[in-house]
């Protein structure tokens, strides 16, 4: 899950990056509206956590621009203004959820998961395909009912594939979901993760489509 956090307060931004990271998300930080717009143009995010009061303007203007540009990325507004009227204004501008500061980190993570999930058109909290069940809230996986220990990255790769079973995900697509801007990606990192995953969830679960990428093998 790749998240864009638009927040200008360095301590809070740092906390969100690490906190959402603990919840299994890859977080990019933007401090201003301009940074946020640039990030949204270049990267596809699963969700955006948007502060309303930013140094160069209102986060709502970013949201408005997104929605008028047909960008359907789920947006959670995070703001100090949590009067009812502010919340209504935020939601009516096109936000998917609203959380007032200060907030509980676990609640924020859950809400981000929820808006991201609905962004993919899915209602059920767990991902399942071919006997594999992923619970994003616990970062827990079971294969045929047996718990399997996955690393954070492995979990992310597997959930990227399982979100749309049958669809081929390219290597760079999976990389984008896994690594933030500043992170160095080794050229064979995805292959390594896939290799390890196959060892844990079963050799046949993930299919390699030569030259295109990977997909979950449709269950027989």
């Amino acid at each position: 899950m790749r998240i864009l956090v638009v927040e200008d307060d360095p301590v809070l931004a740092n906390g969100l990056k690490i906190g959402l990271g603990l919840a299994g998300a890859t977080v990019d930080l933007a401090e201003t509206c301009a940074d946020a717009r640039a990030a949204l143009e270049t990267t596809a995010y699963d969700a955006v956590v948007l502060d309303v009061m930013l140094p160069d303007g209102s986060g709502l203007s970013v949201l408005k621009a997104m929605r008028s540009g047909k960008d359907r990325t789920p947006v959670l507004l995070l703001t100090a203004l949590d009067e009812v009227s502010d919340r209504i204004a935020g939601l009516d501008t096109g936000a998917d959820d609203y959380l007032g500061k200060p907030f509980d980190l676990d609640e924020l993570a859950a809400r981000v998961r929820a808006v991201a999930r609905r962004g993919t058109g899915r209602a059920e909290p767990c991902l399942s395909a071919g006997g594999i069940v992923l619970d994003p809230s616990q970062l827990a996986a079971t294969v045929g009912g047996t718990p399997v220990n996955l690393s954070r990255r492995e979990f992310a790769v597997l959930s990227a594939l399982m979100e749309r079973p049958g669809t081929i995900r390219s290597k760079s697509e999976i990389e984008d979901r896994l690594y933030g801007w500043q992170e160095e990606v080794e050229s064979n990192a995805i292959e390594v993760h896939i290799h390890n995953l196959r060892a844990k969830v079963g050799r046949d679960a993930i299919e390699t489509v030569r030259g295109l990428g990977y997909r979950m093998r449709p269950s027989a």
Binding site: D9, V11, L12, N14, G15, L16, G19, D51, L78, A80, G100, K101, P102, F103, D104, L105
Partner: peptide
């Protein structure tokens, strides 16, 4: 509220 949110998160 922002520093409080930061404090709580951290």
């Amino acid at each position: 509220r922002t520093p409080l949110a930061g404090l709580k998160t951290q």
